[in-house]
Computed example of a mutant assay.
Amino acid sequence: MRVMLKATLDTEKSNELIRSGKMPGLMQETLGRLHPEAAYFGPLSGRRTCLLVLDLQDSSQIATTGEPFFAQLGAEVEMIPVMNAEDLQKGLSQL
Rank of each mutant, 00 (worst) to 15 (best):
K6W: 10
A7P: 06
T8S: 11
E12S: 09
K13W: 08
K13N: 02
S14W: 13
S14N: 12
R19A: 14
R19N: 13
S20W: 04
M23G: 00
P24L: 08
G25N: 07
Q28C: 02
Q28M: 04
E29N: 14
E29G: 09
G32D: 08
G32Q: 05
R33K: 15
R33N: 14
L34W: 02
H35T: 12
H35I: 05
E37Y: 12
A38P: 03
P43V: 11
P43T: 13
P43R: 14
L44Q: 12
G46I: 01
R48L: 14
C50W: 15
C50G: 14
L51C: 10
L51Y: 14
L52N: 07
L52R: 01
L52P: 02
V53H: 00
V53A: 01
V53D: 01
L56C: 05
Q57H: 04
S59D: 07
Q61S: 11
Q61V: 06
E67L: 05
E67Y: 02
P68C: 01
P68I: 00
F69A: 13
F70C: 11
A71L: 08
G74K: 02
G74V: 05
E76P: 00
V77I: 02
E78D: 12
M79C: 12
I80P: 06
M83L: 03
N84K: 01
A85I: 03
E86S: 04
D87Q: 10
D87Y: 00
L88W: 05
L88C: 13
K90E: 08
G91P: 11
Q94I: 01
L95E: 11
